[in-house]
Design a protein around this nucleic acid. Structure first.
Lengths: 221, 221
DNA sequence: GAGCGAATTTGATCTGCAGCAACTTTAAGT
DNA sequence: ACTTAAAGTTGCTGCAGATCAAATTCGCTC
């Protein structure tokens, strides 16, 4: 009855659409400096993006500035493709980011031509929904430590279990993704370090080595 | 840039699929007593459901029993249609509920025959995703009072602004939907009543009259 | 590589909501 | 209608995480 609550890698679907990229559906390349807005909530959905290098955050704001980050997008991921005329959230480059861009229209036209088009679009939306469902459980019911552990495992999985996990985003970004404050995220990392579940590599707190993935996973479930 | 964060009515898409119902896609009818499981997380997605009367909750559980309700389904709503072989959450009748049932297979076959089929399926998934995105903002960043106000306005809108809002679900259900405890939900309702934003109608706390929708909406945004 | 602003950590304190308990009210089942 | 469990409210207390503050470290620019 119960399944893993963490999010599986998003490679498959993106790979599907990447096949289209191989046919030069993504015509032009573009760079965004760190902190730059890619598109804003309410703007027209004119372009679709695929990340070559870097990272992007998408978020919603409340009127007083409270921010909720829906998702982080990493190299290979597509974003900005929505079934609607306007974007439902804002997208910003977390770090210096390179993307491939195509017009939404031309992507949809290419898709219509082939059997797999509509279904790969549906697959993308479904994958986003699945991620959102798991994230609602995290935001509604998990403790701070459980959230941070889940976050680290999610990123670890999406990056293919590298020896060193390089976080492109700040503690504040992580906090706004997990529904916490940056101080609480920092404390949770320190706690996990104290429990020998992770360590920092080099002279930065953005490079993390997961020493005990099993232990971290137990904070989930 | 900022748009309404509350969820719009889900009638349009369901109406779309209801057209199929008119053609007897939904063959058989079924009843579930209050608290009965309609399907469980991990079970095969064999049937698709449309509510005639009553209400259904869909939720995920953590191993220690913490529960997060994704969504409530009301008369006219479809649920159980997922793009995958197994259900990603459990569905239960909140109250005595009557549903129309059809086999997933036959619905998908009927859809394939027509232009609108795939797109109305996509529309349904997109609508669920949109709801989830708004709900993540609520769960991650809103206060208890804001959450309860948003919940009441959501239900009010989905039921078409009735004079009396009849809640089919308990305070505990509401709490598990909003990421709170039932006591906090109860207190929030009392607070809003003290502020003359709502009142209870009749000899029950499940029938609510919204006295000040504008005021409630200000707890949002 | 020196200097400076931003990011992170850590400590101290505060607070909104959770947890527990007692009581009241409501509705389900006989 | 009666009975009895379930649901809801309210008060009290506790705590996880927020907030405020300060020190430290990091990374960027010149």
């Amino acid at each position: 009855m119960l399944l893993r609550t963490n999010t599986p890698s998003s490679r498959p679907v993106d790979g599907h659409l990447a096949a289209l990229a191989g046919e030069r559906v993504f015509c032009s390349e573009f760079r965004y400096r760190r902190g730059t807005e890619v598109f804003g909530e309410g703007e027209e959905t004119e372009y679709v993006y695929q990340i070559i290098a870097g990272a992007v955050r998408t978020y919603k704001l409340l009127s007083d500035g409270r921010r909720q980050i829906n998702s982080f997008h990493l190299p290979g991921d597509m974003f900005g493709l929505e079934n609607g005329a306007v974007h439902r959230f804002t997208a910003e480059a977390v770090v210096e980011t390179r993307v491939r861009i195509t017009r939404r229209r031309s992507l949809l036209e290419t898709m219509q031509g082939r059997e797999s088009g509509a279904s790969s679009f549906l697959g993308l939306v479904t994958r986003n929904l699945q991620h959102a469902e798991n994230h609602m459980l995290l935001l509604g019911r998990k403790t701070a430590l459980e959230r941070v552990a889940a976050f680290l495992l999610e990123l670890d999985e999406r990056l293919g279990h590298p020896r060193i996990l390089v976080l492109p985003m700040s503690r504040r970004d992580i906090a706004d993704y997990l529904g916490l404050t940056l101080e609480t995220v920092s404390r949770a990392c320190s706690t996990l370090r104290g429990q020998k579940m992770l360590k920092f590599e080099g002279a930065t707190q953005r490079q993390i080595v997961l020493l005990d993935r099993k232990g971290l996973a137990e904070y989930d479930a």
